[in-house]
C-alpha cells in the first residue's frame, strides 16, 4: 500500500527548520484513547465488543497449558495471573541483568518461556506471544504506569528520547514534532495523539488484529520514510522505554482499540 507514503510525503515541502521539542507538561498528558472517535472508544471500553479480549482469552488458555522440557504451565510457577501478574506490565520495559539492557514485556515472556519453561520461544508478533502479552498486560488494567528512572535504565531512556526527538527519514521529521508539539491538532481530519502507549498490545482497526507497540512504532517509522528497526532491536526497545516512562502515572488500558 502506498497510502502511508502519500500522506507523509506531503510533509516534505513543509519540513520546518529544526527546533527542539518541548515536553508535554505533566498534568496535560492524556491517554491516546481521548484522541480516537467515540465509537472506537466505546468498542475498547465494552469487553464484549473489544476484539482484543479474544486475544486475552487465548492468552488465558496458554497461561494454563503445560509446555517445554519443564512440562510446566506458566500457572504452575506463577500461580493465578490475576495475582502473580498484577502490576507487572506497569514496569516494562525493565532492565534485564542477563542482557545488560532493557527488555519489553514480550521479550520477558519469551525469556521466561525459554529459560524457565524450557520451551521454544515464540516469534515476534506471533499470535501466541501477543495473546500471552495481552493476558499479562490485562492484569494491570487501571493501574498507573510505574516506570522508574533508575540509574541502570537512565541511559536507555535518554537514548529513547534522542530517537524520539531526532529528525529522521526522507521526510526529515521527528516523532516529537507531531506528538510533543502538535498533539490535539487536526492533521488531515486526524487528531494527533500524544503517543502515550497505555494500551498495548492493541487491537488496531487498520491491522484487523492485535499487534505490539514495536509493530506500531515500525509503522510510524516507515510512515516517516525512515528505516524501521528490526523487531527486538535495542533502539526500538529504547523508544518503547522512553514512551512508557513519558506516560508514567497514566493507567494501563490493555487491550486498547485504535484506528
Amino acid at each position: 500500500m502506498r497510502r502511508t507514503g502519500a500522506i507523509f510525503a506531503a510533509l516534505v515541502a513543509a519540513a520546518p527548520v529544526a527546533a527542539r521539542a518541548a515536553d508535554i507538561p505533566f498534568d496535560q498528558r492524556r491517554s491516546d484513547s481521548e484522541f480516537v472517535s467515540a465509537d472506537t472508544r466505546a468498542m475498547q471500553n465494552d469487553d464484549t465488543a473489544n476484539p482484543g479480549m479474544l486475544a486475552v482469552l487465548d492468552g488465558e488458555t496458554l497461561w494454563n497449558t503445560k509446555a517445554g522440557d519443564s512440562n510446566k504451565s506458566c500457572a504452575d510457577c506463577h500461580g493465578d495471573a490475576k495475582v502473580g501478574m498484577k502490576g507487572v506490565a506497569t514496569r516494562y520495559p525493565a532492565f534485564a541483568a542477563e542482557f545488560g539492557r532493557p527488555i519489553d514485556l514480550e521479550e520477558q515472556i519469551n525469556l521466561s518461556r525459554s529459560t524457565d519453561q524450557k520451551a521454544a520461544p515464540f516469534a515476534f508478533e506471533s499470535k501466541d506471544l501477543l495473546a500471552l502479552t495481552a493476558y499479562v498486560a490485562y492484569q494491570s488494567r487501571g493501574m498507573p504506569i510505574a516506570l522508574q528512572e533508575t540509574a541502570k535504565l537512565k541511559p536507555f531512556i535518554e537514548d529513547g528520547r534522542a530517537i524520539f526527538e531526532r529528525r529522521q527519514g526522507q521526510l526529515n521529521l521527528s516523532c516529537a514534532q507531531c506528538h510533543d508539539d502538535n498533539w490535539g491538532k487536526t492533521l488531515a481530519g486526524n487528531l494527533i495523539p500524544q503517543a502515550m502507549p497505555t494500551g498495548y498490545p492493541i487491537y488496531r482497526l487498520e491491522w484487523q488484529e492485535v499487534g505490539s507497540l514495536q509493530r506500531r512504532l515500525r509503522n510510524c517509522l516507515s510512515g516517516m520514510r525512515a528505516a524501521p528497526y528490526n523487531f527486538g532491536a535495542l533502539s526500538l526497545v529504547e523508544l518503547e522505554l522512553y514512551l512508557m516512562w513519558r506516560a508514567r502515572g497514566l493507567p494501563i488500558e490493555a487491550p486498547a482499540v485504535r484506528p
Partner: peptide, 8 residues
C-alpha cells in the same frame, strides 16, 4: 444479545 468471534 452480543456476540463476537475471532475470524479473519
Amino acid at each position: 444479545i452480543k456476540t463476537l468471534i475471532a475470524h479473519v
